[in-house]
Amino acid sequence: MSVLVELGGVRKSFGARMLFDIAHLGIEEGRSYVLTGPNGSGKTTLLRMLAGLEPGEGSFRFRDSLVRFAPHYPERLQRMIAYVHQHPYLFHTSLRHNMEYGLKCRGVATKERRRRAEEAIAWAGLAERQVTPPESLSGGEKQRAALARVRALQPDLILLDEPTSNLDKEGRAQTLALLAQLRDERRTVIVACHDQEIISLAGIGRFHLDDGRMQ
């Protein structure tokens, strides 16, 4: 299997305080991983760096190119790596518009866009919730919508930040089922989490970030 992302010597510090210094981390194409670690160990920060949302020192290899962090993050990569916030933001328009947004940015034709948006809504199990304003959806529904919105774009790498935190039992189960599907579809995914159920999903790789080091 080919390596999609390879980090070597990636550091992040706030002022004099070093948050982490990652000697090495390899992500294989088509695999799902969990990124665990105590609160404040820098999981969110690392995912945001990879998505171009946060500056950092060092660089990483993405396929054959060497990528520097923001503000030197290449525009091209913005469309290949998708980050989903811990509390996803849905645009206050309509569910369908949310699903179509990224497709529109990519210039996908209207008809095809509609079709893929419908498919994404169905995948998230939200077909009956289309009339609800997106901002009024429950936490679990928002999370599923955000997963479907990103999946519809078929990015090379999906970064999820604690997708099951703050969800009730049912919401967690539904989100977990979608994560298992992403794994089965052989998407490349990194999930930052504490959730034991995600961690013990079969066939998922694991990294542990603690005390500034990757284990």
Partner: peptide, 25 residues
């Protein structure tokens, strides 16, 4: 909400599109 612009960018919006989306939100 700072997530608006970040979400737009992560979904593939250009800086300009991200700004327009922020204003729209």
């Amino acid at each position: 909400d700072p997530r608006i612009y970040e979400t737009a960018r992560c979904l593939g919006a250009s800086r300009w599109q991200g700004s327009v989306t922020t204003l729209w939100e």
